[in-house]
Nucleic acid binder design. Structure first.
Lengths: 239, 239
DNA sequence: CGTCTCATTGAAACTCCTCAAAGGGCGTGG
DNA sequence: CCACGCCCTTTGAGGAGTTTCAATGAGACG
């Protein structure tokens, strides 16, 4: 059930069978979430964290005039709001972009984890630090990359993250996002996303159509994006 | 010596005298860092974390063409790279923007902390989650706010963070940054920062000149910025 | 007092946005 | 099973915000 979460965890850290059962024991219940549901609203008191089992979710903030900025996309296996364990309230909203299946992890079980499992605590601390690293890479994109490069970078990032949980290969991956969703990730308008996608397509690098990303020239795409996967910390680390 | 760090910690969490001594015991040495020194380079193996005692530091990333994006500014009392404890290598560089005094905290002492002090561990986990919250707010700025609002927001953020460690009051604060530094924080050019500063000044909101931020109309500034300090988690939380 | 960096200003160019409209795909209901 | 409606995608034209290039001014430091 939480297999993808274990995949992404094992990819970066070595965990004992006993620790795996401790992770299994974190989950209290599994729930289905319809697409376009805002699961958690900024500011509300939270008592459990959410692990994404299937589907795509995001963290987003918006301005009074309705403009929205997605701060991070979440793929299956991700802990979407592990940080709510220490923050108690979030500074952002959490929404399901597609129909999702999530596992709920009560904060008191995480509390117990920090008391009894220092190694797993460090692993989960690492996990929130990885989210921060993704935020930083997005800051670089939003601040300094132009539209085409920004888009290329996001498609590379998703490729790496989905591949880690077996949901992408060299040919491409399924991505049930609209061009408006991409716009909200990249600080652009849907219209400009459309034009930028065309540029990438006409350059023979990648096609995004009917919810599928087809990679035609991964090296070229990474070149345009100046993509270096180091920020995803894909190498095993002993924490 | 680490008084500002204790100030910002006490502002958000209650800690016992015994925990305070544990924090004191983290520091191995204090070091001076000249302005414009890159202390830590992306990718290198790190064995200690850096606590900022005095001066301003930043985390930054850059692109091949030399464009730079600052991902976060650090004020005295901040742990600049606490996340290097779990990540081991950083995805970004760390630079002193002004002459700085820093305290070095060996990772093995943090490791011991996670084994013996779960409460302090949660407090420091919180601290890295707070950095992530600041990153998210910057993503919102970079993606969706226009130049003037972005600048106003940063000046509000720094006011709140500096006030927390007693380095800002209602009148303003000292800020030893150049307009180019601000440009690198905000994803703009120095020229445009200059024009935007003029707009804020002529609107009677704030003046930034000779390293001083003078707040003339805090309410107005917050309005322009759409500034809500919630993302700084200034309220006490029991973790 | 000269030098260097930082700040300031103007004019032109460019990227991306806004507004608008038409074209496609898919599910639902008649 | 087709038609309708709805949302998403695509394209065009004009406009706004920001950048680039260039030059001058001001302040700090040796």
């Amino acid at each position: 059930m939480i297999e993808k979460h274990l995949m992404r965890t094992r990819a970066r850290h070595s965990i004992t069978p006993e620790e795996e059962s401790a992770i299994h024991a974190l989950v209290r219940e599994v729930r289905e979430v319809p697409a376009r549901t805002t699961l958690i609203h900024a500011g509300e008191r939270i008592h459990h964290s959410t692990m994404l089992l299937d589907g795509l979710m995001c963290r987003y903030k918006d301005l009074k005039d309705g403009q929205r900025q997605i701060a991070e996309l979440h793929v299956p296996g991700d802990f979407v709001d592990l940080h709510s364990f220490s923050l108690k309230r979030l500074d952002h909203n959490i929404m399901a972009l597609t129909p999702c299946r999530v596992a709920l992890v009560p904060h008191d079980r995480l509390q117990a984890l920090t008391e009894n499992h220092p190694h797993l605590t460090r692993i989960y601390w690492f996990s929130t630090n990885l989210d921060a690293a993704i935020h930083r890479e997005w800051e670089l994109s939003l601040g300094r990359r132009d539209a085409v490069s920004r888009l290329a970078h996001l498609l590379c990032e998703l490729h790496s993250r989905l591949a880690l949980v077996g949901m992408a290969d060299d040919a491409g991956y399924r991505l049930k996002l609209t061009q408006s969703d991409l716009a909200e990730c990249l600080g652009l308008t849907p219209v400009h996303i459309n034009r930028s996608l065309r540029q990438l397509r006409e350059a023979g690098l990648v096609t995004f159509r009917s919810s599928k990303v087809e990679l035609h020239d991964m090296a070229g795409l990474r070149g345009v994006a100046e993509f270096d996967p180091a920020f995803l910390y894909l190498e095993p680390v002993e924490v």
